[in-house]
Simulated assay, not measured.
Amino acid sequence: MVPLTDCQRIGVGLVGFGLFFVLFGMLLYFDSVLLAFGNILFLSGLVFIIGFRRTFTFFFQWPKLKGTSFFMGGVLIVLMRWPLLGMLLEAYGFITLFRSDPRFLALLDLSLLQLLQKVGDSSSMV
C-alpha cells in the first residue's frame, strides 16, 4: 500500500465527492448545479493528488490537446447550464484523453473486474 500525504488524502476525498456529485446530478435528470459542483470538486481533487504542475502538463500536452479542449469545453458548457450537451462533450473528451494510455485502460479493466467479483460474491439468496 502506498502511503499518502495529507494533501493527497484531501485530494482523494475531493475526487470522491466530485464523482458522487456528478453521478447524483446525472441521476436527478442532469441537474446542472450538481454536475458543475462535481466537476469543480473532481478537477480540484486531481490537482491536490498529483500537483498543479503535473496536472497542467498532463492536460496540455500536444497530442492530448483535442481531448482536453472537449473536456474543458464540456465543463464550461455545464457551468453555462446546458448539462446534457456538456456531459456529452466531457465524456468524449475523457475518452479521447485516456484512449492512448494503456495503463489507464488496464487499471479500468482490473477495477471493473474486481467490482463485478465483489458484487457477485456478496449477493446470496439465503
Score class of each variant (00 low, 15 high):
residue 29 Y to H: 13
residue 29 Y to F: 15
residue 29 Y to G: 14
residue 31 D to C: 13
residue 31 D to R: 04
residue 31 D to E: 14
residue 31 D to L: 07
residue 31 D to I: 07
residue 32 S to W: 12
residue 32 S to G: 13
residue 32 S to R: 05
residue 35 L to C: 10
residue 35 L to G: 06
residue 35 L to H: 03
residue 36 A to M: 12
residue 37 F to L: 15
residue 37 F to C: 13
residue 38 G to Y: 03
residue 39 N to W: 07
residue 40 I to K: 00
residue 40 I to H: 01
residue 41 L to V: 05
residue 41 L to A: 12
residue 41 L to T: 02
residue 42 F to Y: 01
residue 42 F to K: 00
residue 43 L to D: 00
residue 44 S to C: 13
residue 46 L to H: 02
residue 46 L to I: 02
residue 46 L to M: 09
residue 47 V to S: 03
residue 47 V to N: 00
residue 47 V to F: 03
residue 47 V to W: 06
residue 48 F to S: 02
residue 48 F to R: 02
residue 49 I to V: 15
residue 49 I to S: 02
residue 50 I to T: 00
residue 50 I to A: 01
residue 50 I to E: 00
residue 51 G to A: 09
residue 51 G to Q: 07
residue 51 G to Y: 09
residue 51 G to L: 14
residue 52 F to K: 04
residue 52 F to N: 03
residue 53 R to K: 06
residue 54 R to F: 14
residue 56 F to S: 08
residue 56 F to Q: 05
residue 56 F to K: 10
residue 56 F to P: 03
residue 57 T to P: 02
residue 59 F to V: 05
residue 59 F to K: 01
residue 59 F to Y: 07
residue 59 F to A: 06
residue 60 F to L: 15
residue 61 Q to E: 15
residue 62 W to C: 05
residue 62 W to I: 15
residue 63 P to S: 11
residue 64 K to Q: 10
residue 64 K to G: 11
residue 64 K to Y: 07
residue 65 L to N: 05
residue 66 K to G: 10
residue 66 K to P: 05
residue 66 K to R: 13
residue 67 G to P: 04
residue 67 G to L: 01
residue 67 G to C: 10
residue 67 G to S: 11
residue 68 T to W: 01
residue 68 T to L: 08
residue 68 T to I: 08
residue 68 T to G: 05
residue 69 S to E: 06
residue 69 S to T: 13
residue 70 F to N: 01
residue 71 F to D: 04
residue 71 F to Y: 11
residue 74 G to D: 08
residue 74 G to P: 04
residue 75 V to R: 04
residue 76 L to M: 14
residue 77 I to L: 12
residue 77 I to V: 15
residue 77 I to W: 04
residue 78 V to C: 01
residue 78 V to D: 06
residue 78 V to E: 01
residue 79 L to E: 03
residue 80 M to N: 00
residue 81 R to F: 12
residue 82 W to I: 15
residue 83 P to H: 02
residue 83 P to A: 08
residue 84 L to D: 02
residue 84 L to M: 13
residue 85 L to F: 12
residue 85 L to K: 01
residue 87 M to S: 06
residue 87 M to Q: 12
residue 87 M to T: 08
residue 87 M to R: 00
residue 88 L to Q: 06
residue 88 L to W: 12
residue 89 L to R: 06
residue 90 E to N: 12
residue 91 A to Y: 13
residue 92 Y to L: 14
residue 93 G to Q: 06
residue 93 G to N: 05
residue 93 G to T: 10
residue 94 F to G: 09
residue 95 I to M: 15
residue 98 F to G: 05
residue 98 F to Y: 09
residue 98 F to V: 10
residue 98 F to W: 04
residue 98 F to P: 09
residue 98 F to T: 10
residue 99 R to K: 10
residue 99 R to F: 14
residue 99 R to E: 09
residue 101 D to S: 09
residue 103 R to E: 15
residue 104 F to K: 02
residue 104 F to V: 15
residue 104 F to Q: 02
residue 105 L to Y: 05
residue 105 L to W: 05
residue 105 L to A: 11
residue 106 A to I: 11
residue 106 A to Q: 12
residue 107 L to N: 08
residue 107 L to G: 08
residue 107 L to R: 00
residue 107 L to S: 05
residue 108 L to F: 11
residue 108 L to E: 08
residue 109 D to Q: 12
residue 109 D to V: 13
residue 111 S to H: 07
residue 111 S to P: 08
residue 112 L to G: 07
residue 112 L to N: 02
